[in-house]
């Protein structure tokens, strides 16, 4: 029973990180209809910037802000310099550009900060909270991560559901031409979408770093599970990202804890196959639109 409680708690905390990364993927998908396979590497780069500042005695919160700003800049540059020239070409091209970015950014991170594992200091205690006599696998830092993820999700929901900016972003992504006819500056919306998504991914990177250690490709694994999570929930839905993220967190935690860590990805695959066979566009997809 004790193990089950702990695995559940670990599931929630890892799931929260997956959810944070998945929300970045949801944001970019809603805003530009692309899957950003480079998101993990971008987040890692921002996280390195943050840790460099923390090493120089900058406070955690300022470093977090610096990571977000780095993310905004990376996102803006990616859209302006790489994605815009290939708009209206083969829809696979953005995916390949993102893969190229992934390779380049990981290599550059390795060149600047070296290919060694680094600790990332956390602003809250990472030791488990004491319940009665035993410590459970839930720390103050874990609670902070969960709160942060909830705040991000609510912010995303508000942005897309109630603000005109969110509406413009979605219109620009779904139908650039109609959006332009309605006075939406489509190019600006795409840039903004990229900037916000990478900014959000950078927060996810900083949130994940104390648990996974910092390494040029430390987010690769997290990113794959987060991508799976986003798909489970439905790429169009921020709530789906949270549910999918937690779901993947439980799968990884229970499968890893009871059956051995080498079966985690197989567990993920099985869950994904089961869910998608009932809901081919994820749990929270709007009913499927088929374009005629």
């Amino acid at each position: 029973m004790h193990q089950f409680v702990n695995l559940t708690l670990i599931g929630i905390t890892t799931g929260a990180v997956y959810a944070a990364v998945a929300m970045g993927l949801v944001l970019i998908w809603r805003a530009t209809r692309t899957v950003n396979f480079a998101q993990g590497a971008m987040a890692t780069f921002s996280t390195y910037v943050a840790v460099t500042l923390i090493d120089r005695n900058v406070s955690y919160w300022l470093a977090l802000l610096a990571a977000i700003v780095t993310g905004l800049i990376i996102g803006t540059l990616t859209e302006r310099l790489l994605m815009r020239p290939i708009a209206n070409t083969n829809p696979l091209n953005p995916v390949i550009i993102a893969i190229g970015m992934l390779i380049v950014l990981e290599a550059v991170s390795g060149m600047i900060w070296g290919a060694k594992y680094r600790e990332f200091p956390s602003n809250f205690s990472v030791t488990g909270i004491k319940v009665g006599t035993s410590r459970i696998a839930l720390s103050a830092f874990d609670i902070y991560v969960m709160v942060a993820v909830l705040v991000l999700m609510v912010a995303l929901l508000i942005l897309f559901r109630w603000t005109s900016l969110g509406l413009k972003m979605r219109a620009a992504a779904f139908s650039p031409e109609i959006a332009r006819l309605l006075g939406v500056r489509v190019g600006r919306m795409l840039t903004l979408g990229w900037a916000l998504a990478v900014g959000m991914a950078s927060v996810a990177g900083v949130l994940a770093a104390p648990n996974v250690l910092l390494y040029p490709n430390n987010m690769d694994g997290v990113n794959v599970f987060a991508f799976t999570a986003a798909i489970l929930g439905g790429l169009d839905s921020p709530v789906g990202a949270l549910v999918g993220g937690l779901g993947m967190g439980f799968v990884v935690s229970y499968v890893g804890g009871y059956l051995g860590s080498s079966l985690e990805t197989i567990g993920g695959l099985i869950v994904l196959l089961i869910v998608l066979s009932f809901r081919p566009q994820g749990i929270f997809a709007a009913s499927a639109a088929r374009r005629v």
Binding site: L82, N93, I96, I97, I103, V104, A107, V108, M111
Partner: peptide
């Protein structure tokens, strides 16, 4: 790392 970076950059450049 440089080899990787060049590989990635060539990938982007070709596209």
């Amino acid at each position: 790392n440089l080899a990787l970076a060049i590989y990635g950059l060539l990938l982007i450049a070709v596209i």
